[in-house]
């Protein structure tokens, strides 16, 4: 659902964050991506960057060219002109193998004095580790944003699924293994490189989500595997498959389907 009136948060002298809703739904995401497209197409001189996320978009501006009230006025004008979300939105399906509850992930949790995170999540959801894995693997995920780090992904389940809710780390980790899949709130995150992080870790992906040198031919036309608007399907693999795929990183043939998504068929707006 999209708020009747968006909430505009002042984030300092050079940015604003616009909150368009709070349910993080597919429609809200497509609405934000559409707003981003319209804003960029107007090419305001002061616009430095846009950061679209699940419920918000941050606009970074040049504070020597414009002050915050001017940006707010410009945003209100764009919204007043109307944001119309097309029902058919191009959306590829990218298949990704995951080794859930793998030793690397468990080892990392241990380094930060945490039990295996899947155990924490099972407890917070009153269920078992196996059930959390089943719930996570089952649905299709919509890629909401890729802005945490180069090659990272923030995605959420769409269609019918059983929810997983959990806390994040109280003190964020100073590092997270590359390829980690984790959950913070209801967002599934993929960590592409060794980086700080606060979400609970589920498992590890053995293949690349980015490749700047295009060692894997797949990346010859772009260094990133997924983009906002794509969908992801996770597939549970075991230790043997994980090792095999890890060794094939530079030759792995990605499984990607061209497709589109119709938000109206996902119900609520």
């Amino acid at each position: 659902m999209v708020f009747k009136e968006p909430i505009i948060l002042k984030g300092g002298d050079s940015n604003i964050t616009i909150k368009f809703g709070d349910d993080g739904s597919l429609y809200l995401n497509l609405y934000i991506l559409t707003f981003e497209k319209i804003t960029k197409s107007r090419k305001p001189q002061w616009l430095v960057d846009t950061t679209a996320l699940r419920t918000t978009i941050m606009l970074t501006f040049d504070p020597l060219l414009i002050q915050i009230d001017g940006v707010i006025a410009a945003v209100e004008e764009i919204i007043a002109d109307g944001i119309s979300v097309p029902n058919e939105y191009p959306s590829r399906i990218v298949h990704l193998p995951v080794f859930y509850n793998d030793p690397l992930t468990r080892e990392c949790a241990k380094c930060f004095n945490m039990p295996p995170n899947l155990e924490v999540m099972a407890k917070e959801n009153n269920t078992s580790v196996d059930e959390i894995i089943r719930r996570h693997e089952a649905p299709e995920y919509f890629v909401s944003y890729t802005s945490f780090m180069f090659g990272s992904v923030g995605a959420f389940p769409i269609g019918k699924y059983k929810n997983i809710k959990n806390s994040k780390y109280k003190t964020p980790r100073t590092w997270t293994p590359p390829g980690t899949v984790g959950i913070g709130g209801s967002t599934t995150a993929i960590y592409s490189m060794k980086s700080p992080g606060g979400v609970m870790m589920l498992g590890n992906i053995p293949i690349k989500t980015y490749d700047i040198d295009a060692k894997n031919k797949h990346f010859e036309n772009g260094n990133l595997l997924v983009h906002p608007g794509d969908r992801i399907k996770f597939h549970c693999i075991d230790a043997n498959q994980y090792e095999r795929l890890k060794n094939q990183r530079d030759s792995y043939a990605y499984e990607i389907e061209s497709s589109h998504i119709e938000w109206k068929s996902y119900g609520n707006m």
Partner: peptide, 27 residues
Amino acid sequence: IDSGIGGIDPSNIPTEGNPLGSIQCPS
């Protein structure tokens, strides 16, 4: 909070852009 998109700790919010020099309070 916020339909659980952010997380269940009071410091958790749905993911947002991090402005340069912004001050987060995770604990």
